[in-house]
Amino acid sequence: MARYTGPVCRLCRREGQKLYLKGEKCYTDKCPVTRRNYAPGQHGQMRKKLTNHGIQLREKQKVRRYYGVSEVQFRKYFKMADKMDGITGENLLKVCEMRLDNVVYRLGLAASRKEARQLINHGHFTVNGKKVDVPSYLTSIGDVIEIKDKSKASPKFKGLVESHRGNVPQWLEVDAENMQGKIIAEPRREDIEIPIEEHLIVEWYSK
């Protein structure tokens, strides 16, 4: 399935809130959501009343775009979450949080999830000592994610942990000196940066 390759700031504007897709730019006054807080396109400023169907769709699209997940992958994650013990909506978010690209971003080893996907694709990371170049790889508690030794000397990675604006969540542990991190617990629902009503996504897929 083709991945969206247009301006990612348009996705944030379409959802009407920051999805932190652009890294450092999202925290400055240059963020398009701050400057033009309306949907993109010729009719973006027109007020539209959404139906229940539309509200559920927008919530699903928002979470998909937040994590950079395709529709096929997201539906697969929902089926996984539905079979797990606990609340399906929260399980879905936990599965998305455990993706390798999200973990790399959360550890501060990339400025955005998009950059994390690129770095993983280029083979810069290992999981438990083995190279993993699949951004959608689902990590587990106890996994150690580390920048490859050959990549640590690159200016790209120097100081990334220290300069990362987001706080590293409590379910992760960072060793900045060795440029590595460890998953020490399950992701917490309250650690997600944007407001999400996951029950709307469950309603969408339960039709």
Rank of each mutant, 00 (worst) to 15 (best):
residue 7 P to E: 02
residue 95 V to W: 03
residue 81 A to K: 04
residue 28 T to H: 01
residue 158 K to V: 08
residue 170 Q to G: 12
residue 138 L to V: 06
residue 178 N to V: 03
residue 125 F to K: 05
residue 135 P to F: 03
residue 57 L to D: 01
residue 9 C to D: 12
residue 60 K to Y: 04
residue 183 I to N: 05
residue 162 E to A: 13
residue 113 R to Y: 08
residue 150 K to D: 12
residue 71 E to P: 04
residue 58 R to M: 01
residue 110 A to Y: 04
residue 199 H to T: 14
residue 168 V to G: 00
residue 42 Q to R: 01
residue 179 M to E: 06
residue 20 Y to H: 05
residue 142 G to E: 09
residue 168 V to S: 00
residue 175 D to T: 13
residue 129 G to M: 02
residue 155 P to K: 02
residue 45 Q to G: 07
residue 55 I to R: 15
residue 8 V to Q: 05
residue 17 Q to I: 07
residue 37 N to D: 11
residue 131 K to I: 06
residue 122 H to T: 03
residue 205 Y to S: 08
residue 205 Y to Q: 11
residue 23 G to V: 00
residue 44 G to Y: 00
residue 96 C to T: 14
residue 180 Q to S: 11
residue 63 V to L: 03
residue 36 R to I: 12
residue 70 S to W: 00
residue 193 E to Q: 13
residue 18 K to L: 07
residue 92 L to V: 06
residue 6 G to K: 09
residue 35 R to Q: 15
residue 145 I to W: 07
residue 109 L to A: 00
residue 163 S to A: 15
residue 123 G to N: 13
residue 181 G to C: 11
residue 23 G to D: 06
residue 139 T to N: 02
residue 27 Y to I: 03
residue 192 I to W: 03
residue 197 E to V: 15
residue 21 L to P: 13
residue 17 Q to C: 05
residue 93 L to R: 08
residue 160 L to D: 03
residue 84 M to A: 15
residue 52 N to E: 07
residue 27 Y to S: 10
residue 180 Q to W: 02
residue 167 N to D: 15
residue 134 V to Y: 02
residue 197 E to T: 15
residue 180 Q to I: 04
residue 196 I to R: 11
residue 43 H to S: 12
residue 142 G to M: 11
residue 196 I to L: 10
residue 150 K to G: 12
residue 202 V to A: 04
residue 91 N to A: 00
residue 42 Q to A: 00
residue 203 E to S: 14
residue 112 S to F: 02
residue 57 L to T: 07
residue 65 R to K: 12
residue 47 R to V: 03
residue 11 L to P: 13
residue 1 M to T: 14
residue 198 E to R: 14
residue 49 K to C: 02
residue 177 E to Y: 12
residue 86 G to D: 02
residue 110 A to W: 01
residue 140 S to A: 10
residue 131 K to H: 04
residue 74 F to Q: 07
residue 84 M to E: 14
residue 43 H to D: 10
residue 22 K to W: 03
residue 147 I to A: 06
residue 53 H to D: 09
residue 192 I to D: 06
residue 80 M to F: 14
residue 161 V to N: 02
residue 8 V to S: 11
residue 76 K to F: 05
residue 96 C to Q: 10
residue 2 A to E: 15
residue 201 I to E: 06
residue 81 A to W: 02
residue 172 L to H: 04
residue 90 E to S: 14
residue 80 M to S: 15
residue 154 S to R: 10
residue 85 D to W: 13
residue 185 A to S: 13
residue 175 D to P: 14
residue 14 R to H: 09
residue 44 G to P: 01
residue 153 A to V: 15
residue 77 Y to E: 10
residue 133 D to T: 12
residue 159 G to E: 07
residue 144 V to S: 09
residue 6 G to F: 05
residue 136 S to E: 15
residue 187 P to T: 06
residue 21 L to A: 14
residue 104 V to I: 09
residue 83 K to A: 09
residue 125 F to Q: 09
residue 93 L to V: 09
